[in-house]
């Protein structure tokens, strides 16, 4: 990675662009015609200007000093885990806590290096199952269930 094209520069540029886009959006959103401190975008604009300024300073500091970033050892492992975690949070409500948690547990255990299929299956069934039993039946705080059965 070069001094000007690296992960740190990329992230700071994204932060800068996001802040600039949000700031620009404050002029396109329609609000009641109230001025200054009454305006809903009065305070957000101050914060966004500070965000832009600080992003610029951080970007310049990074370009000058170019500190090295620690490399990610297991990039594929990480990508799989992030995808699984986001999918888990998206589908938990739709397919129920037990099914999605069991599926996520399988992926997570494999990503963290567990290879014994019996341990993986037992963990994936027992841990989410115990949580469903605890919350649904003992604490009476129902977790989302799947469209297939009322029990989990």
């Amino acid at each position: 990675m070069s001094r000007f094209v690296n992960e740190r520069v990329f992230v700071l540029l994204i932060l800068l662009l996001v802040a600039a886009a949000l700031y620009a959006s404050t002029f396109t959103q329609s609000f009641s015609d109230v001025g200054n401190a009454h305006s809903p975008v009065f305070f957000p604009r101050i914060i966004l200007v500070l965000w832009i300024g600080l992003s610029l300073i951080a970007l310049i500091q990074t370009l000058i000093s170019a500190p090295a970033n620690t490399p990610i050892v297991g990039l594929l492992r990480l990508a799989i885990l992030i995808a699984a975690a986001v999918a888990y949070t998206m589908f938990l409500n739709q397919y129920g806590f037990f099914l999605t948690s069991a599926a996520f547990a399988v992926v997570c255990l494999v990503v963290f290096g567990v290879r014994n299929p019996i341990i993986i299956v037992v963990y994936a069934v027992v841990v989410p199952g115990a949580l469903v039993a605890l919350f649904n039946h003992i604490l009476k705080m129902p977790l989302p269930t799947s469209p297939f059965t009322f029990y989990f």
Partner: peptide, 16 residues
């Protein structure tokens, strides 16, 4: 592995 998996499940449960 066991700890990290349990943390994610408990966090999801908490937020729900």
């Amino acid at each position: 592995a066991y700890m990290m998996t349990a943390i994610v499940l408990l966090c999801a449960l908490g937020i729900y």
